[in-house]
């Protein structure tokens, strides 16, 4: 085999690397464009405001599905936010290097890698069966809280750690208690980061399927209470594609999903940029 000169291999390598980047863009473009082109034509006011017929029929719209998704987001975020922020405050403001802290860190670290279906299995065993909640919104939401807690804690903790230490020292020097310092100084300064964490969690509720597939039931009807079952947009896509082969409606629902996800991504990027510039301003404000 002839030796390739460094110059040739340099050129070859760069072509391949750009090729990898190009292919990645192509994959994303293929998915997004394919779904939008095939799905958007089905989306109209009627599709968004009529309930699906359900059962083995793929006909109808997605109104009840949208309502269920919104309910699920609200319940999940309502439980997740206080617990997640509380845990993050403990880890960033109070925790000393002891066994309990190390255990908590290990738990957060490990929980983040456990797959969705295992959370589903757990939610099924605990919330659906042992606590007799059945396949319901509350069982799905509690399962989601367990699933999302590690990310919520980590993102919030990072936001709190990014607040300059001088802020806390200034507040403590003025005679504020530790909690007053956290509540009136650290938390407000970390707010954009915490908002990002909440929005990211909302996105995950919308994207998640496996753990909900085994805890939410999958009824297409309008939920009447937190003990009713239901299906989210993502689950609806699954049922339409697998049970009814209604690929046109599945594409339309998937297009709605992709539009929501793109909006969420743009919004979090904007937020984190704002956060970064606010943080640099804090740093520059230092004497």
């Amino acid at each position: 085999m002839p030796r390739i000169s460094p110059k040739t291999s340099e050129r070859l390598a760069k072509i391949l690397l750009w090729g990898a980047g190009f292919l990645t863009v192509l994959i994303l473009a293929a998915i997004v464009i394919y779904v939008l082109v095939n799905g958007v034509s089905e989306i109209n006011w009627e599709f968004l405001t009529t309930p699906p017929i359900g059962g083995l029929s793929g006909e109808g719209g997605i109104s009840t599905i949208i309502v269920t998704t919104v309910y699920l987001i609200l319940i999940t975020i309502f439980i997740l936010t206080p617990v997640g922020i509380g845990a993050a405050i403990y880890l960033s403001e109070y925790a000393q290097d002891n066994i309990l802290t190390n255990f908590i860190r290990y738990a957060v670290e490990t929980l983040a890698g456990v797959p969705s279906i295992i959370y589903g299995l757990f939610g099924y065993a605990l919330f659906v069966s042992a606590l007799y909640l059945g396949h319901s919104l509350i069982a799905g939401a509690l399962t989601l809280v367990c699933l999302l807690l590690p990310t919520m804690i980590r993102t919030t903790e990072e936001a709190l750690r990014a607040v300059p230490q001088e802020y806390r020292e200034a507040s403590l020097a003025l005679g504020a208690t530790r909690w007053q310092t956290i509540w009136h100084v650290a938390l407000p300064a970390a707010l954009p980061g915490i908002a990002t964490a909440i929005i990211l969690s909302t996105g995950r509720v919308i994207e998640e399927t496996a753990c909900l597939y085994v805890t939410l039931g999958g009824s297409a009807a309008m939920p009447r209470s937190i003990l009713s079952g239901g299906r989210t947009l993502a689950l609806h896509v699954y049922y339409l594609a697998m049970d009814t082969m209604a690929f046109d409606k599945a594409m339309a629902t998937a297009a709605v999903l992709i539009i929501i996800i793109v909006i969420i991504n743009l919004f979090t990027n904007w937020l984190s940029q704002r956060f970064r510039s606010a943080y640099t301003a804090m740093e520059e404000g230092r004497p």
């Binding site: 990645t24 998915i31 994207e207 399927t209 993502a234 699954y238 594609a241 793109v262 969420i264």
Partner: peptide, 16 residues
């Protein structure tokens, strides 16, 4: 682009 690939729901990958 890479970030958005993370955000696409797994059912959409399945459907496509």
């Amino acid at each position: 682009v890479v970030e958005l690939l993370v955000g696409i729901p797994s059912v959409v990958y399945g459907l496509v």
